[in-house]
Write a protein that binds this DNA or RNA. Sequence first.
DNA 1: AATGTGACGGACC
DNA 2: TGGTCCGCCACAT
Length: 114
Amino acid sequence: MAGDSGATAPGGFTDRVKAILRRIPRGRVVTYGLVAALAGNHRAARQVAWILHASSARDRLPWHRVINRRGRISLPRLRGYERQQELLEAEGVRLGPDGRIDLRRFLWVPPRLP
DNA sequence: AATGTGACGGACC
DNA sequence: TGGTCCGCCACAT
């Protein structure tokens, strides 16, 4: 039907990840591992990255709010890095001189899961 | 069913 | 501090 372009099992890991990503507030970030954990598998961080890579703009996911555990943008330079940085800074997320984001300050952790 | 993918994470040196 | 190696997982082909 309309929207089966997603093609993943409804309510599956991918759906959960997407739902979580859409709840990240502006000006906040999460790590791949955290999202994976919230989605039910703390070891599936790589899968979260894969989902973002495979998702299109139509998914309306705040992909730029996902960074790695070091507080850094994982996208390679000239392959999305600058774009992500720009989007983050536009929301007030500041990168340090080493391109690091202070997770203690910007990391978003949902207060509770329903 | 087997193999490949991918923007990870952690252990280790 | 930073590079390398390895384990992990769900989805694609």
